[in-house]
Design a protein around this nucleic acid. Structure first.
Ligand SMILES: Nc1ncnc2c1ncn2[C@@H]1O[C@H](COP(=O)(O)OP(=O)(O)OP(=O)(O)O)[C@@H](O)[C@H]1O
Length: 673
DNA sequence: GGACGGCTATTTTTT
DNA sequence: ATAGCCGTCC
């Protein structure tokens, strides 16, 4: 063996191999965001550029890299969005991704506050009030505080809630908000402050927390309890936030604190899609995001994968007129496609007829109803169309507007359940008492005074007598009957009766009252049955009620399924707000008239007007291929009957070239007239 | 005194 | 859907 060849072997540094082919599924900028390691990063990009997709892949990538899913936190705008994204990641990789902590700021806050309740002075079983619950509390306190006085106009309960909420979310005083937004109520400042104090006291006494408190208390926990903050950093080593343009100042500060010294936070958003300023959101948060950290990688995504270029040309034209924000131009590889159509209808009915006709035509072409959406600025603008859809038998689902949990009959039913959880829940008592025949605000108030004092006790059924002194015999009997029924329910509750069973007992008690109160009780009873079905999955009443407020069933009450079409997946009707982040092959946007979109009061301020414009931009960028913008020329006005409507300025300011203009004419069919 | 029916005018968007 | 207002009834 004279010549022995010596071959040197060396260790090649491991090239990380992934199960997913990220570089094939993502463009270079998306890939950069997905592979981003440590430190803060901001992905700022226009509609349809794959921000959501990027987040899903980043979850998968982190998990693949061995980050325990529990150490990842994904904050999104709705809980549904979080679920879908994690589900997507799980499909891409494996089930571990479902274990990632995900939800809204509010649901995350709830989870953390449950864990550290004592640190912020809460009892661990605190309850969350939704918007309408908060309004009900304010309403009750208002009548109690100012019962004898004041004939003059007091703000609507909704306005009250809005004033207080805006003050908190924007970190301003009530005085500031009044002078900025409600100057006509400025003289009521002392009363409004008094009411606010009463509201805070009420919440504290009853262990209640509203949406704003969730954020406020989480922030307080992070700021004032360094050891808790460190525990949270240790747990959530990678934080991701979607839709950052719609965070409010509280959420922004929470995000920064959650990122901690390692600054492992990745935020995603589009300043041109900021549409929640009425909730305190401020698109400047996304602009300021990089400044909050030592170092921040900024990634922009340029290519739109959703829509055809004609649709993007229109979207670009809309946003190029915006006063605020970064300029950007959306570009697509799909250069060809039908032009968006701007369509003039004579009136609302003709608008509905066209939508129905065109939906059917698209379905003929093979586009399923589930790939089509009709959008509008406000949910009541669908009423007429809904009638027409039902008549023709097109199944649809409606999102946005009045939610199931906000309807009077569902709130009535839940009031019974709430009394079982907390006998001093005076708001629920108020609701329930007013349902009884012969009981009005005055009697209810007298009874509730006693309940507030703690006179009524489950252990002592006779205690009700003390509340009924001086009340007429027939009303006494009614109230006592109610109380006895409640006591029976309470015994069931103590025996850990399953939630659906317990609620169904509440419903049995409620049913005659429902029938007495509402002419359309059949329809309402179906809603109650729907609610009972939702309760099936829950172990405790607490959990159920909390989920109803933190993750309310978004679908509005829609019950149309024409015979024979049960199998077909339905058409979507949605407010533009609720359509955020979603996409459809064909999108109709109805009621593009001046005063409806933009809403009339948006003319009061540049900020409001600009937000309407962004909202319009969001609406148009939901469409993949077909976009129809409709405006009826005539509308009904309360005072003058028919009035001539003008098309939205957002339409008239557009260049002729970005859309086709259609005019509808109704065929005079066979002289039936 | 208080409940209640019937009238009118006003109603955005949502965690 | 909700609030305020007013007349009527118990
Ligand atoms: N690299 C890619 N290759 C193929 N399809 C992509 C790619 N990136 C995104 N898409 C597709 O483009 C569409 C829009 O993506 P996505 O919803 O993630 O965008 P987005 O930026 O979150 O939009 P928006 O801001 O409007 O919510 C989706 O159908 C997505 O699957």
């Amino acid at each position: 063996m004279a010549h022995e060849r010596r071959i040197q072997v060396r260790i090649i540094p491991a090239r990380r191999t992934y199960r997913l082919r990220y570089e094939e599924e993502l463009n270079p900028a998306q890939l950069q965001a997905v592979m981003h390691q440590n430190g803060a990063a901001l992905v700022i990009a226009g509609a349809g550029t794959g921000k959501t997709r990027t987040l899903a892949y980043r979850v998968a990538r982190l998990v693949e890299d061995g980050v325990p899913p529990e150490n990842i936190l994904l904050l999104t705008f709705t809980r549904k969005a979080a679920r879908q994204m994690l589900h997507r990641a799980a499909q891409l990789l494996d089930g571990r991704c479902e274990r990632v902590a995900g939800g809204t700021f509010h649901s995350f806050a709830y989870m953390i506050l449950r864990r550290y309740s004592h640190a912020v002075g809460l009892s661990p079983d605190f309850t969350v009030l939704d918007q309408t619950d908060a309004e009900d509390v304010l309403n009750l306190l208002r009548t109690e505080l100012f019962r004898e006085r004041r004939r003059e106009r007091f703000p609507h309960k909704r306005t009250l809630a809005d004033i207080y909420s805006t003050a908190i979310n924007r970190n301003r005083s009530i005085d500031d908000i009044l002078s900025a937004e409600y100057p006509h109520f400025q003289h009521l400042l002392p009363e409004l402050k008094q009411l606010y104090d009463a509201y805070r006291l009420y919440k504290r006494r009853h262990g209640l927390v509203d949406y704003d408190d969730l954020l406020l208390l989480l922030l307080q926990l992070l700021e004032e309890h360094p050891e808790k903050r460190q525990q949270l950093h240790a747990q959530f080593r990678y934080v991701m936030v979607d839709e950052y343009q719609d965070t409010n100042p509280l959420q922004h500060r929470i995000s920064v604190l959650l990122a901690g010294p390692e600054e492992n936070i990745l935020a995603v958003g589009d300043d041109a899609q900021s549409i929640y300023s009425f909730r305190g959101a401020d698109f400047r948060n996304i602009m300021d995001f990089p400044n909050a950290f030592q170092q921040c990688t900024i990634i922009t995504l340029e290519e739109n994968y959703r829509s055809t270029q004609p649709i993007l040309n229109l979207a670009n034209a809309i946003i190029s007129r915006a006063i605020y924000g970064y300029r950007k131009q959306l570009q697509s590889r799909q250069k060809e496609g039908p032009s968006p159509a701007i369509i003039r209808a004579e009136d609302e009915r003709q608008q509905s007829l066209f939508v129905v006709q065109q939906v059917l035509a698209l379905r003929e072409q093979g586009i399923p109803l589930s790939d089509i959406a009709v959008l509008a600025r406000a949910s009541h603008l669908f009423f007429e169309l809904e009638i027409e859809l039902s008549r023709v038998g097109i199944p649809y689902r409606k999102f946005g507007g009045l939610k199931l949990t906000e309807t009077a009959h569902i709130k009535d039913l839940l009031a019974f359940a709430r009394i079982l959880l907390n006998i001093t829940d005076t708001v629920s008592w108020h609701r329930v008492l007013l349902m009884l025949e012969g009981v009005g605000p005055r009697t209810a108030h007298r009874i509730i005074e006693g309940i507030r004092e703690g006179i009524l006790r489950w252990e002592d059924p006779q205690s009700i007598e003390n509340l009924l002194l001086g009340i007429s015999p027939s009303i006494r009997t009614t109230v006592i009957q109610l109380w006895e029924a409640l006591c029976t329910l309470f015994r069931l509750y103590l025996r850990h009766t399953p939630v659906p069973e317990l609620l169904s007992q509440c419903a049995t008690l409620y049913r005659p009252l429902l029938q007495r109160q509402y002419d359309d009780h059949h329809k309402r009873w179906r809603d109650i049955e729907a609610l009972l079905a939702l309760a099936e999955r829950y172990q405790t009443l607490q959990e159920f009620l909390t989920d109803l407020t933190l993750d309310p069933p978004t679908e509005s009450v829609a019950d149309v399924a024409a015979p024979g079409s049960q199998e077909e997946s339905p058409l979507t009707l949605s407010t533009v707000h609720s359509a955020k982040g979603l996409e459809w092959t064909a999108v109709f946007l109805i009621w593009m008239t001046d005063g409806r979109f933009p809403v009339a009061w948006a003319y009061d301020s540049v900020e409001a007007f600009e937000e309407e414009r962004r909202l319009f931009y969001v609406a148009c960028t939901r469409a993949r291929r077909f976009l129809y913008l409709l405006y009826p020329l005539r509308a009904i006005d309360h005072e003058s009957g028919w009035i001539l409507a003008k098309p939205s300025p957002f339409l008239t300011e557009l260049d002729e070239s970005v859309a086709e203009h259609w005019v509808l004419v109704t065929e005079n069919s066979l002289g039936t007239g």
